[in-house]
Design a protein around this nucleic acid. Structure first.
Lengths: 233, 233
DNA sequence: CGAACCATTGACCATGATCAATGATTGTGG
DNA sequence: CCACAATCATTGATCATGGTCAATGGTTCG
């Protein structure tokens, strides 16, 4: 989905956040930074739900979706992971979710084993892992508040702002994914996504210069919507 | 998890699961087990969203809700924690959610500082913490699949089965919480909860001997509903 | 016994899913 | 390079689920 030649440089490339947060060493991140890059094309899997062994990835560019297939056959995207994010750390017994590139992705990866032995040599690295999983937990909780009891319009407003935040762009948001991906992430249908994007456009909150781009015109308006402080429908 | 043969009195008390899973030492759990018990009554908070310091609890009996207040004033319960579960480990920067007892609760608690110094002395304890947070992550993801794209009836069926699993009862499920709590957990209104409970009753999937108890009559039927394999509406 | 709270039930309505048709964009082979 | 196919996005019409408002019933506590 989505061509995207990274030739034209960073226009389509999310930037890795400077340095996420808090504490600890950067031992695990440092380890990952030394790995060779690996390129995945759209729809290529990082790992599957049922995999026993699981590699650990750090995303350099592109978007990765963590998803699960529900009983009714629907795909629920639990989390979107962007450049700078680590994917696959949530190991242990069975974490049952799959990871797939929903845009061309560049990532560096290592094995669980390597990370484990790193922790053995540098016990403080465990604190970093705890931080990283904690971030994933926070993002998953955020997803719950995004999904629940919010109208389609509110979900989309929040989604656009989140993308913008992650891309550290001022106005131009690159979607880098299909309407289906957005729908599966927000728990909507593609029709509803489409309708509410045009609704945001009609309200002059955004412009849609092309199908994979959004220009934010009224950040405050979007923000009010996303927070549920909306004045009306 | 489970087995539970308790007698008399504790009819309303969940038992802690024997030993959750997998790996590592039980150093943190051991530390918690040595703490004095603390009793909280319904609606008493373990901690608030904005708290800086945060204690770490192990629930002995009762139910704790992790929740957040959304912009529209609604309460979203992100996670229900039962006996044997640890609450408050998801520290780090700001995890922004509050924890409240929604039934009388008995818990043991310690401070973050104590756990940290334990990890300093026994680095392997970090692996246990990673496991515990990983469990919380898994449960939060489970909550997403429960919330999203499921009908009210499906949510309730899944909820009842989950409670049953946690109480290791065969047929009798003690709710130990109000309809409002259930609604805030499932992302529904109390009216919808009520209506769909009676719908399950009419279909002979459950009985409702009293307002805080459910008797499972057709586990397979509930299971089919919860998995979305349902035959019809 | 009455008051307060919680749960149930009903009537109505709005949001979003579904079904269906049309447009737009991309990819492929002649 | 164009034509066709295939995929994806948009828009419309209809309907069902669940939210809201409102009234009633049941339980508990003073």
């Amino acid at each position: 989905m989505l061509a995207l030649s990274e030739t034209t440089t960073s226009d389509y490339i999310y930037r890795a956040p400077v340095s996420t947060s808090s504490s600890s060493t950067r031992a695990v991140m440092g380890l990952l930074a030394k790995q060779p890059v690996r390129r995945l094309s759209s729809d290529e899997h990082l790992f599957h739900e049922q995999d026993h062994t699981r590699q650990i990835f750090r995303i350099e560019s592109g978007v990765v979706a963590l998803y699960r297939i529900l009983g009714n056959g629907r795909r629920q995207i639990m989390s979107l992971r962007f450049p700078g994010d680590v994917v696959g750390l949530d190991i242990g017994a069975n974490r049952h979710c799959s990871a797939v590139a929903i845009s061309p992705v560049v990532a560096r990866s290592t094995t669980r084993r390597t990370v484990d032995s790193l922790v053995e040599r540098q016990p403080q690295a465990a604190a970093e892992i705890i931080d990283l999983i904690g971030e994933e937990l926070a993002s998953t909780r955020q997803q719950i508040t995004l999904l629940n009891r919010r109208s389609a319009l509110e979900k989309l407003a929040a989604f656009i702002l989140e993308l913008d935040r992650r891309q550290s762009r001022q106005d131009l948001v690159r979607l880098q994914m299909s309407r289906t991906d957005i729908a599966d992430f927000l728990g909507l249908t593609i029709e509803t996504v489409s309708r509410n994007l045009t609704k945001l456009k009609l309200r002059k909150f955004i412009r849609l210069p092309d199908i994979h781009s959004i220009i934010i015109l009224d950040r405050q308006g979007l923000s009010d919507l996303a927070d549920g402080d909306a004045d009306c429908d």
